[in-house]
Amino acid sequence: KDIVLACPMNMCPQDEPNKTPQEIWEDFSLSFTPAVREVVEFAKHIPGFSALSENDQVTLLKAGTFEVLMVRFASLFNVKEQTVTFISGATYSLEALKGMGMGGLLDTMFEFSEKLNSLELTAEELGLFTAVVLVSADRSGIENINSVDLLQESLIRALRALVSKSDPCDASRFTKLLLKMPDLRTLNNMHSEKLLSFRID
């Protein structure tokens, strides 16, 4: 069976018949590793994150990296043109990607990107929102839920103040932004299911 990992993080998403599944998987791993490292560096700069236990830091990052990357790369999804630009710089049409097996997940990613982009967040707002997404006490396996919860609450307060400051006339903007979090969870679950279908036996 051909393996096509049509992920925006993948530098070589096309079918490569001469490569073994193991080699395809290793190439993919090399493609997304720098992005994961950037997420870890970002987390280290969240005030209070490094004070959490190492296990809780790892748990938050394992659970939230996809969501952070989804927020960060929402701009790669061009809703108007119905295209996705991969980190390699190559642009693929929605139809081409669907042909590679990216069905429902891709539609939901486009839907999310459109809604997030419509909020026209500043870089600062986007960064703080991403921190709120990452520091979520309800991730499975958190040991010190209270510490993570307190940190997330302080980040949410800061985000609320920032969003209110940049647009005092639109009180719903902050609420709309927080409502993107359950959308991200849904996407994360769909992405996990997709990944499991590619598992190496």
Binding site: F32, T33, V36, T65, L196
Partner: peptide, 27 residues
């Protein structure tokens, strides 16, 4: 692999990055 993060080797990458593993950095 029962969870996708393990499937990707994500935990290993994260732990190394958290520790500031210099061996894997370009410089």
């Amino acid at each position: 692999f029962s969870d996708p993060a393990s499937n990707l080797g994500l935990e290993d990458i994260i732990r190394k990055a958290l520790m500031g593993n210099l061996e894997e950095r370009p410089e």
